[in-house]
Nucleic acid binder design. Sequence first.
DNA 1: CTAGGGTTAG
Length: 501
Amino acid sequence: MMNRIAFIKLRGNFTTKSFLLHSETPFSSFHIGLHSDTRNVSSNRSLFDKITNLNDALNLFDEMSHRHPLPSVVKFTQLLNVVTKMKHFTYALNLFKQMCSLGVPLDKYTLSIAIKCCCQLHRTKDGFALLGCCFRRAISPNVYIYNALLDGLVLEDKILEAEMLFKKLIKQKLCEPSVVTYSTMIKGLCKFGNNVTALALLRLMEQKNCKPDIVTYNTIIDSLCKDKMMDDAFKLFKEMVFEKGILPNVITYTSLIRGLCNLGRWDEASKLLKEMEDENISPNVQTFTVLVDAFCKEGKVEEAEAVINIMVERGKAPDLVTYSSLIDGYCLRREMFKAREIFDSMTLRGLVPNVVTYSSLLNGYCKNLNIEKAEQMFREMSGKGLKPDVVTYNTMIQGFFQVGRCVDAHKLFDEMYAQGQIPNECTYRIVLEGLCKNRQVEEALSLFHLVGDSKLNSDIAMYNILINGAGKYGKVDIAKNLFHDLIDKGLQPDVHIKSPT
DNA sequence: CTAGGGTTAG
């Protein structure tokens, strides 16, 4: 549980930072039509059902926008929805902007889709700007719009703002929260490891006569499983099935099986797998991948391979995630030849390795101190048009430090910036650790001070690295200063620090 | 014409 919270905290910091980079609000300047259009509500769905790719949708939009008279807002919104369903949120927003300039009279449907797009693009701020447009245009926002905004805040890890919005909805009666509203808020709480409040909210919604459904239960059950609280997870599972009469689905079972596997409770996991099959719920690729991953993390690649064979027999093709887990498994066992073989076999199966796949193998090479092979992978992925992400850079930088190539590590650290990848807390940890390991404690210290006021400077883990690094090479003064520094900041020294004497 | 849940890398 601690790990999850630490992880989220870490991610939260940097999403906030990167969000500030695009905080311009492009919608405030838009003209939004005033008329409400009630013509032509009868839908011609078949027209839009046929659109299966982005280009067709964009072409149709273009054609529609040249018609005289313009098609109704309903037609435009249907098309907008098609693009959104394809998850092309940026394109959908562009279409929305075009609708604005064409003077198509927008309604709450159009706006709810546009708001959803902003939120899914981590631009919830723009979503709220559009909410303002709703108010100005006397379009009263409904529960769909608030759900989209709430989800956006959760997505950006702005849990406090999400809670504030949620409470505001209820207190000011802005809309009647639906089961989706509650479930979204519950998801946010779970994401921050706050299962207790999530459960309290489950009870609250029941009190308010809003019936939790399979999604609500799955969200909490999954969170409990992630926190290894299997007893609570099964208690909730039983409540859902026997008290509420809600049938579990493949997602419910997959969460439970993952929880058991991660605790090494293989027998119970296999029992559950059998149980779900008895209930006629077939495990899917994700269910099997959970098993593969769990086996691999314990170095049991033979078992993982057996699961993959079963998958294939049942016509469930292992995907990128499955193979990435298997590659990790072989890397862990230092069987790099085998890892490479899996990697190559993926291509033969028509799977295109992505950044994660490359990073897995690259990580394997680094951990096995075959830095040249890792560099080769790094170059190869760039050659294939895959942009290394923060994790890739972190892995490679750590690899360089491990073999004492500090200059290359430094170069890559700079390149990371140049490529627009913002270093995260892991990056700094790796760099600080790397510098200390390579007897460059002073440099680590100056980097630490350079980063300045960020959370980093009040992170006990960073102090641990520096103090231990300084202590190891007899730089007692530095260690002492750091120790006093952290006490001054009110940080609690933990067991990982050897108090300098 | 609108909404929510499960899997991967350091």
